[in-house]
Amino acid sequence: MLLEKILLQLKASSSADFRWFQHAAQTFVKIPFFGAVSYLTFAVTPFCIVFAVIWAVYHRVSFAWIGQDILGITLIITVLQIVRIPNLKVGTVLLSCAFLYDIFWVFVSKRWFHESVMIVVARGDKSGEDGIPMLLKIPCLFDPSGGGYIIIGFGDIILPGLLVVFSLRYDWLAKKSLRAGYFLWAMTAYGLRLLITYVALNLMDRHGQPALLYIVPLTLGTFLSLGKKRGELKILWTRGEPERPCPHMQEEDQQSLNQH
C-alpha cells in the first residue's frame, strides 16, 4: 500500500508538471562565455565542483567509496532522465546485445587477454595512472580476507534501468495501478536477479560475474510474458504508449448515447 501511494503521488506530480525549484530552473542569468544559465544551475554548480574536487583529492582513502557512489548515482539518474527507449522492441534488441556483450568481455576475453577486460575497465586500473571507475562499490561486511568490495558496473544498472523507466512511463500514461502495471514487476525481477548475481559471485569464489547474464532474462522475460498475458504486447512492442481514444471520438460517442 505504501508503494502504491508513492506511485500515485508521483503520477499526480507528473500530470501537474510539478518540479522542485521550478521557478529557479526556468529563470536564467547571462554569464560570459557560457550564455544563458538557469539560476538553479548557477546555484548548484559550486557545490558540485567542490564535491568532485574533494573526491579527486581524497579518492585513495578508505571511505572514498561513498563519494564515488554518490557521483555514480547522480550520473546514472541523469542518463535515465535523458535517454529513453521508444518501445519494447528497441529495449529487447538493446538488452539482448548487451547480454551477449557482457558475457563475451567477462568470460571469453579472459582466455584471449589472460584477464577479464570488462572487470579491468570497470575498475579503471591497469592504465598506468588513475582511471575513472565506472562502477558502484560497497565494502564487503563479511569478507574474511578484508578490504574486499562488492562492485556493479554502470551498464548493469543503466541498461536494465531503461526498461524499468519505460515500464513506469507506460503505467503513468495508461493510468495503471501499481499492481496492474509493469513497474512493480520489472523492479521485483531486477532486484531478484541482483540477489542471484551476488549468490553466484560467492559460489564462484568472488570471480567477477556478468550481471546482465542473470538480470536480462528474467527482467525482459517478465515484461514480455506480462504483456502477452494482458493482451498489450503488440502495443508495447511497436508503439510503446497505451492506446488512448481521440477526445473528439469520445464526444461523438457521448452525444450519440444521449440522443438514444
Score class of each variant (00 low, 15 high):
1 M>K: 11
5 K>I: 14
5 K>G: 14
7 L>G: 00
10 L>G: 09
12 A>G: 15
13 S>D: 13
13 S>Y: 06
18 F>R: 06
25 A>E: 13
25 A>F: 04
27 T>H: 12
31 I>P: 02
32 P>V: 05
33 F>K: 09
35 G>V: 01
36 A>P: 11
46 P>G: 06
48 C>L: 15
54 I>S: 12
55 W>C: 09
57 V>E: 06
57 V>K: 09
57 V>M: 11
58 Y>E: 14
60 R>K: 14
62 S>N: 12
62 S>K: 14
63 F>C: 12
64 A>F: 03
65 W>Y: 12
65 W>F: 13
67 G>F: 02
71 L>N: 01
72 G>A: 14
74 T>D: 05
76 I>M: 08
78 T>E: 10
78 T>P: 07
79 V>D: 04
79 V>A: 10
80 L>S: 08
81 Q>R: 08
81 Q>L: 12
85 I>G: 08
88 L>F: 13
89 K>P: 02
90 V>C: 11
91 G>F: 00
91 G>M: 02
92 T>E: 01
92 T>C: 07
94 L>G: 07
100 L>C: 12
100 L>W: 10
101 Y>L: 13
102 D>N: 05
102 D>F: 02
104 F>N: 04
106 V>K: 04
108 V>H: 07
110 K>W: 07
111 R>F: 15
113 F>Q: 07
113 F>K: 04
114 H>P: 05
114 H>Y: 09
115 E>H: 13
116 S>M: 04
120 V>A: 11
124 G>C: 03
125 D>G: 06
126 K>R: 14
127 S>Y: 05
128 G>E: 03
129 E>G: 15
130 D>R: 12
132 I>S: 06
133 P>L: 00
137 K>W: 02
139 P>S: 09
141 L>C: 08
142 F>Q: 08
144 P>E: 07
145 S>K: 15
150 I>T: 02
153 G>K: 01
155 G>W: 00
155 G>Q: 03
157 I>E: 00
159 L>R: 00
159 L>M: 10
161 G>C: 06
162 L>M: 14
164 V>D: 05
164 V>S: 00
168 L>K: 07
168 L>Q: 06
168 L>A: 13
170 Y>D: 01
172 W>S: 05
174 A>M: 09
174 A>Q: 08
176 K>A: 11
177 S>C: 05
179 R>G: 01
181 G>Q: 00
184 L>H: 04
185 W>V: 04
188 T>F: 13
188 T>N: 10
189 A>M: 05
190 Y>D: 00
191 G>T: 02
191 G>Y: 07
192 L>M: 12
193 R>G: 05
198 Y>V: 11
199 V>S: 08
200 A>R: 01
204 M>I: 13
204 M>E: 11
204 M>N: 15
206 R>I: 06
208 G>Y: 03
211 A>M: 04
212 L>V: 03
212 L>N: 04
217 P>N: 08
217 P>D: 09
222 T>I: 05
224 L>T: 09
226 L>A: 06
227 G>M: 06
228 K>W: 11
230 R>V: 07
233 L>A: 06
235 I>D: 11
237 W>V: 02
239 R>K: 15
241 E>I: 05
244 R>T: 09
245 P>W: 03
247 P>Y: 07
248 H>A: 15
249 M>D: 15
251 E>D: 13
253 D>I: 15
255 Q>S: 11
256 S>I: 08
257 L>H: 04
258 N>E: 13
259 Q>M: 12
260 H>P: 08
